[in-house]
């Protein structure tokens, strides 16, 4: 029997396959298609202090081996999540990881504080790609100094393990990774979507109402693998790999360059049972290759 379990930030996960925020709703939407108890963890849709209605449509556009989205972080808000969604999620024997974001330092602290007091959340994942409304709308995740301060403030506000989700829209992911570690992150996840744009050549209009959006899907995988490799070599804390994973082999690619776990994103749209199929694929691979513990493959890259 292959051991797929991994340990991250003091938590034991039955396997390294998690579902990525924004692609798995609040988890319950997927229960007709797969057994949520089989997942390593569910990372829920990004939560904010107040409900957010999101961006005007069109919000998505298909691109080669991927898609652009500008959903605008639409969500029910942290209070409604805690009251309506979390009690149902608690019934499953799976780690629930609450992804959250804010438009100011204070919003981050307050939202994280509310989440950390709830029963049934294993860890928090912090999205630092959103704009800092007070400081000229520049994304928090762009400036290493801002990352360290933001992570440090949230760290003080919560007791739960804190995962910081890094943005790839930076020239130096190593600095961003080190800043998050300095600030007190227990783990990092990478990457969030890459900013992209698509234009209809006949109407000459951008295909998204908000002009630009986040690119996801297999198209971004090589970029993501490279960034996860860089981040994992720059820090001591665990890194969780995200970016265009649609098969067990894709997941292994991330683990071999140093990811301790992975998140499945866009693949959930293509096949709602994708994450469970990837778990089965990992088991098959390990059996065939005579790998007893999947964690033995973490960081096994030969460079």
């Amino acid at each position: 029997m292959v051991d797929l379990s991994v340990e991250i930030a003091g938590l034991r996960f039955r396997n390294p396959v998690w579902t990525a925020s924004g692609t798995f709703g609040y988890g319950l939407e997927f229960s007709p298609y797969l057994d949520l108890n089989q997942l390593g963890a569910i990372v829920v849709k990004g939560l904010s202090l107040k409900p957010s209605k999101g961006n005007p449509p069109p919000r998505t556009v298909e691109t080669p081996a991927g898609m652009l989205n500008s959903i605008g972080l639409q969500n029910v808000g942290v209070d409604a999540f805690l009251k309506e969604k979390l009690p149902q999620l608690r019934k499953f024997d799976t780690h629930v990881i609450a992804n959250f974001y804010g438009n100011s330092f204070e919003e981050y602290e307050e939202t994280a504080g509310k989440l950390s007091q709830a029963e049934g959340i294993s860890a928090l994942e912090m999205n630092i790609s959103c704009p800092n409304v007070k400081e000229g709308n520049l994304p928090f995740g762009r400036d290493p100094k801002v990352i360290e301060e933001l992570v440090g403030r949230v760290r003080k506000a919560v007791k739960l393990p804190l995962i910081v989700k890094l943005s790839p829209n930076t020239s130096d992911i190593k600095s961003a990774a080190r800043s998050a570690e300095q600030g007190g992150a227990d783990a990092l996840s990478a990457i969030n979507t890459l900013i992209g744009m698509s234009v209809d050549v006949r109407t000459k209009k951008p295909r998204l109402a908000k002009i630009t959006g986040g690119l996801s899907g297999p198209a971004i995988r090589p970029v993501a693998v490279r960034m996860v490799w860089e981040a994992a070599s720059a820090v001591k804390i665990p890194v969780i790999g995200i970016g265009g994973i649609v098969s067990a082999e894709d997941a292994l690619e991330f683990m071999i360059v140093g990811a301790k776990a992975v998140q499945i994103g866009t693949a959930n749209f293509l096949d709602p049972a994708a994450s469970v199929k990837i778990i089965e694929g990992l088991r098959d691979f390990c059996e065939k290759e005579q790998v007893e513990r999947v964690r033995d493959l973490i960081g096994a890259v030969r460079v």
Partner: peptide
């Protein structure tokens, strides 16, 4: 246009008249 079809990608939204004030006025 839809990415998922079952309510998780939130890509296929239609603007509707707001009946309550529970959503943030952005």
């Amino acid at each position: 246009r839809m990415a998922c079809g079952f309510g998780v990608c939130l890509g296929c939204v239609v603007p509707v008249k707001q009946v309550s004030e529970d959503a943030q006025e952005s």
